[in-house]
């Protein structure tokens, strides 16, 4: 297992190197650059040219790439063109809201989805199963931003415990943290929750038709024990895959929720950087997200072995 983990992590190095090259080339070949945006609406061509030069954007691309790569090797991800702040400092500022939102969303989704999905499989075809399925179709179909605005309209603002927007760190108290993150979690978690719910239902349903489940029933094992000890554990591999990949997705893809609730997270940072062509920030973020995916995939593979002892690396 240790060898496998080391091999996977070492294998990630050329992957990240290729991503670095690809992202750099893609960004610099795309039209637009930050000089015109910094210069502003009334800038003259000379103003734009002066800023372009000051930002070293007039240097040959291989030289710019080499400088960036050398910085990476030395742990320097560069400096934002707009704010002159280090990329890692910007990421640090934005990491906590996004990670907090991702964790609360995962907890909310898993806690609600797995019991409901297992129940729906256990009582397949019943009224309860149909209610769960209708809920899952609704959860998938309602666009995230619509759900967000509905939540704000009905549950946030004056006279309610929930603010319309913003983020408060858990270090400032659990209660204000929960007040701020509850609605965004519900907004982001709903579609994710129904996905886990459907995967759980399908997996458990398949397991419940296996011969060894029939054998357990024939031996008189109680239904609750069959569901929790035998069915759920054996159905865990696809569920774990969805949950773990979902975490990486949540870290990198929460921009709509962050925008609706004005949460200063990584998703918004990414979109802002792209729209302003803040090259060092985009490059740094993509590299970090790629590294996160690699790490989570490795962790997921390790988790498989825990749930299914037959899996060995």
């Amino acid at each position: 297992m240790l060898n496998f983990t080391i091999r996977r992590l070492l294998g990630a190095v050329p992957v990240l190197g290729f991503i670095a090259l690809f992202v750099f080339a893609l960004l610099h070949l795309a039209p637009g650059d930050p000089a015109g945006i910094i210069a502003g609406e009334e800038a003259s061509p000379e103003d734009i040219a002066r800023i372009y030069e000051a930002l070293n954007l007039d240097r040959p691309l291989p030289e710019q790439f080499g400088l960036w790569l050398w910085g990476l090797v030395n742990g320097d991800f560069g400096v934002s063109i707009y704010t002159s702040l280090p990329v890692l400092e910007l990421v640090r500022q934005r990491l906590e809201p996004t990670i907090s939102l991702a964790i609360t969303t995962i907890i909310f989704s898993v806690v609600v989805a797995i019991p409901l999905g297992a129940y729906a499989a256990w009582r397949a075809g019943s009224l309860g199963d149909r209610a769960v399925m209708i809920f899952s179709v609704l959860g998938f179909s309602v666009p995230t931003f619509v759900l967000g605005y509905l939540l704000i309209y009905f549950f946030a603002g004056r006279g309610t415990p929930f603010p319309v927007q913003g983020f408060v760190s858990i270090r400032e108290g659990l209660a204000p943290f929960l007040r701020h993150i509850a609605l965004p979690t519900f907004m982001l978690g709903t579609s994710y929750m129904v996905l886990i719910m459907r995967i759980t239902r399908a997996s458990v349903l398949e397991i419940l038709n296996e011969d060894y489940i029939r054998t357990a029933r024939a031996k008189g094992v109680p239904e609750r024990k069959i569901l929790t000890r035998h069915a759920l554990r054996n159905a865990a591999v696809p569920i774990v895959t969805v949950v773990s990949l979902g975490f990486a997705f949540l870290v990198s893809g929460v921009v709509i929720t962050e925008s609706v609730f004005n949460i200063p997270g990584l998703g918004r940072l990414t979109v802002e950087a792209i729209s302003k062509r803040d090259y060092p920030v985009i490059q740094g973020l993509i590299l970090l997200v790629s590294a996160t995916y690699v790490l989570i995939n490795t962790a997921t593979d390790i988790t498989y072995a825990f749930f299914d002892p037959r899996i060995r690396y």
Partner: peptide, 18 residues
Amino acid sequence: WNIQPDKQSAMTALLAGE
């Protein structure tokens, strides 16, 4: 200064006194 990425959210924040 609260930078508002979304106009609808800015409106609800104003109405909520935020």
